[in-house]
Nucleic acid binder design. Structure first.
Length: 138
DNA sequence: GCCAACGTTGGC
DNA sequence: GCCAACGTTGGC
């Protein structure tokens, strides 16, 4: 069981769009590192849904429902997609700022490698961010 | 809107 | 195989 974080620009595809649709084919990834992460996803893995550019926060939890297969939006065989389903919206969004402020989260790719759009995240980091969202005071 | 970081491309 | 030029992403 692995944990991941994917980014989406909310004015292109937001958590609400995702929830409304009930499922998403995660296409358009054109970066090898991100692609390799997509390929490593297994059905049932947990995935944080992060709003980039606007919002700048983790907003919800998704789950991998279908593992990598060729990206139907291109003939190029190098690229793949996975299918995600929404699990639940976070009680409150956890902002990038908060993540940056916590010593225990300094190693996550969201900070270290800000341009990567699909990244692995450690279980402890996942749990910590999740605990932030359940804490009204932060 | 700007710019830093980083990936990709192409000339040599 | 190196590196300059260029494009893209994403935070600020």
């Amino acid at each position: 069981m692995n944990h991941w974080l994917v980014k989406s620009e909310p004015f292109v595809y937001s958590w609400d769009d995702f929830e409304k649709a009930g499922r998403s084919v995660w296409d358009g990834v054109r970066n090898y590192q991100a692609r390799n992460n997509l390929k490593a996803m297994q059905k049932g893995d947990w995935v944080f849904f992060y709003h980039s550019n606007e919002g700048l926060a983790v907003v919800g939890i998704a789950q991998v429902d279908r593992e990598a297969y060729p990206d139907p939006t291109t003939d190029d065989p190098r690229w793949v997609v996975v299918e995600l389903v929404p699990v639940q919206k976070l009680k409150r969004p956890v902002s990038l700022q908060e993540i940056k402020l916590d010593n225990r989260l300094q190693e996550i790719a969201l900070i270290r490698q800000s341009r990567l759009s699909v990244m692995p995240i450690k279980r402890e980091e996942f749990d910590l961010i999740l605990s932030f969202s359940n804490d009204e005071n932060t």
